[in-house]
Design a protein around this nucleic acid. Structure first.
Lengths: 105, 105
DNA sequence: TGAACAGGCAACCATTTAGTTGCATATAGC
DNA sequence: GCTATATGCAACTAAATGGTTGCCTGTTCA
């Protein structure tokens, strides 16, 4: 879970996920195109994404194809963001109540 | 948006958000309790959270009260995770199709 | 077979980050 | 006013991070 959050923290990695979402099965070379960094830098980002299980890869001859795995993102949405969603109004009510209470107490 | 992702990347900061979700209006001192780090370290984490607009604070005398702002998390769920949710099945279908296609092509 | 191509590995560097210590400021309460 | 308490600020350190360069491995194909 922590690995997923950390992987999502970098804008380059989020762009890579976006790119793979738009077109699945891209090679490393393809994922490098348009990015102002070396192939090795992209490789490292992809390794982080694979480590977080956000990207799966398949070797095909001398090429390595990359695929988005949306499941971990889904899990974050379900397990983590969900509880904040539920607590949203409650938190705002708390804020108001507490501020008023402390002011007069 | 990037600030929010980066803020969420640290487990300590996520714990702080959890704590504020459970009980709103906690002081810095309260938020430090049970954490194995100095008050200053917690202060820095809270500064990151405030910078990402995930936490709002109010000075009350010599105390500083902290409140969760769930809105940015909500926005991430809506604007960013949503599109992956929609693309989920499509991505898996792509994966299967592409793998088969490349194998025989 | 050998050249061109796609990618992997490792060492290295600069910056950021997470944490510390030390000291300063401001409020509460006697 | 003085002391204890709550927080703020700044300098410093260690480790992680994001990036580079250089070279090696493996595959395609003429």
């Amino acid at each position: 879970m922590d690995a997923v959050f950390k992987a999502l923290a970098d804008p380059v990695r989020r762009e890579l996920l976006d790119s793979l979402r738009e077109r699945a099965g891209q090679t490393l070379g393809e994922l490098c195109q348009g990015r102002e960094m070396t192939r090795q830098a992209v490789t490292k980002h992809l390794a982080v994404l694979e480590g977080a299980n956000l990207v799966a890869s398949e070797k095909h001859g001398r090429e390595k194809l990359h695929y988005l795995n949306p499941v971990p993102i889904q899990e974050i949405a379900d397990r983590w963001i969900g509880k904040y969603e539920r607590g949203r109004l409650a938190a705002l009510a708390d804020l108001k109540r507490r501020l008023e209470g402390e002011t007069h107490g």
